[in-house]
Each structure stands twice: as structure tokens, then as C-alpha cells.
Nucleic acid binder design. Structure first.
Lengths: 123, 123
DNA sequence: GTCACTATTGCCACCACTTGCGATAACCTT
DNA sequence: AAGGTTATCGCAAGTGGTGGCAATAGTGAC
């Protein structure tokens, strides 16, 4: 556990959820400008492997990071207006069970957002 | 319909499915080196808006493009071994209906692959 | 056909990472 | 505490994709 890794973990503790790596790097570099962004990226990966953090993909091309101990949940993202909505994993579980029994596949349904058209944007 | 747009569409016709933008750009630039990759990206977007092509997100990073007239289907991607498996949309439909009735959200369940651990990689 | 207008293009700089590499720091073992 | 081993770091260059902009090609109205 190096100084740099500690700083990344601290930044994640402070953030609520869904921070970007860039935001974390920005925060850390405000006080410690010698720390390279690539170090932040590599430490996020390392911390994920150690089980401290996870990431999700909403529909844009940025990866969102958060502590592993927050309650897991799914995301609905509207491709028209970009709005993001959280949904309980419970809603997704029937599909998870089906994929498990039919295909032997253990789906991580919180990993990627579900894309579509939200109620407000529906024609 | 410009020359460049025609070339992008032709490349997609030749490919089976799940081509990457980079692959298309590479093919076109082999014969027409003056065509910029950004033109390919923009044309894929334009052709999508016109209803000729669609894209899906398989693994975490690359966008995969294909003609709009191929049968839509879902994808399971193993985060351990990277294997990709196609599943009929029918399997995903119950979730689609549920999101529609509970949240008013019209999910496009073919848009993003479902990430998890496949049968072979399960512990 | 010609002229105006709009869409599209190529170029370039940027974005969000990723990778290779030599230097440095952390962590054992003695 | 010193020495050796391995992990991690900072730097710099590279990758796949995006966005602004001036030049140009396509189009529609006369």
C-alpha cells in the first residue's frame, strides 16, 4: 500500500459514487502535482483486483469508479436525453437466474447500464 | 450520399457482423488513403441515424458496427476469457417488458453485451 | 446552367486512457 | 541495518475515438 494508492482510495471514499478516473486524478494532482494520471489509472485497476473498488459503464465512453462496499444497483440510461436512473438489482435478478440456469453464465448485471428511451422521451 | 459514405456502407456489406470502425477505416484507406478516419466515424454515425446500420458494445472498449437488417440478438461476454456468445432477444424480453411497465423505460437490450463469467471459467 | 446554401470533408488538436521503460520505493531475509 | 528482490512510479509516446474549423462538394431554386 503506497502513498499514491492510499490517495486514490481516499478520493474514492470522499466521492459518493460514479466518479471518473480523471476526476480523481484532478483532485489528487491539485495537492500532489507530481503524481501522474497513469498512476491513478493503474491503482484503480489494482484496487479493483484487491476487491476495494469496482467500475461500471454508463453509455458514454468514460468508466465510472466507486467503492466496492456501496450497494450494487443497475442503471437505465436514456440515449435521447442522457438521463440516468438507478434501479434495484432485484429487478434484474430474474434474468440473472435465467442466464445462470440456461447458459451457465453468471451475469454481472450491475456492470453495464441498460440503454433505451426513458419515459419522458418516449414518442 | 457521398463517395465516402458509399465506401463505408460497402465495407459494412462485405463484413459479416461486428466490425470495428478502425477495421473499416483500414480497409478503405488501403485504396483511398486520403480519406480520414474521422470521416469514417462520422459516416457510421450518419448511417446509423439514417437507419442503415447499428452498433453494439461488446466488451468494455470497442464499438462494433453492423448492418441494421441482420437479426438482432443479445451478447454474453466473459470477463475472464473474453469469449462471446450470442443469445436470442427472446431470453431478454421478460426484463424488457418489466422495465417498460414498471419504469416506462423502453430498453434496447441488444445494445450492450451482458458481462459475467461463462460456464467454462466458473470456479 | 448558375448561383446560393447547406452538408460533408480533411486536417489537426484534443480526450480518455494505455503501454514500455528505466528509476525508485516497498518488502522481505538475513 | 544492509542487501536483494519485486512492485510500483513518473515520464513520454502511443491508441482509438471526438470535436472545431476552414475548404469543398453536393443540392435545390431559379
Amino acid at each position: 500500500m503506497t502513498v499514491q494508492r492510499r490517495l486514490v482510495l481516499d478520493a474514492l471514499q470522499r466521492a459518493r459514487h460514479h466518479t471518473t478516473a480523471e476526476e480523481i486524478a484532478r483532485q489528487i494532482r491539485a495537492r500532489h502535482p507530481q503524481i501522474d494520471p497513469s498512476t491513478v489509472y493503474r491503482n484503480l485497476e489494482a484496487l479493483e483486483e484487491l476487491g476495494y473498488v469496482t467500475h461500471t459503464h454508463l453509455d458514454d465512453r468514460v468508466t465510472r469508479w466507486h467503492r466496492a462496499d456501496v450497494e450494487r444497483h443497475g442503471h437505465l440510461v436514456c440515449r435521447r436525453c442522457g438521463s440516468e436512473q438507478e434501479i434495484p438489482l432485484r429487478t434484474l435478478e430474474p434474468l440473472g437466474r435465467r442466464l445462470r440456469s440456461e447458459q451457465g453464465f453468471r451475469a454481472d448485471l450491475a456492470h453495464s447500464a441498460i440503454v433505451g428511451i426513458c419515459r419522458e422521451c418516449a414518442p
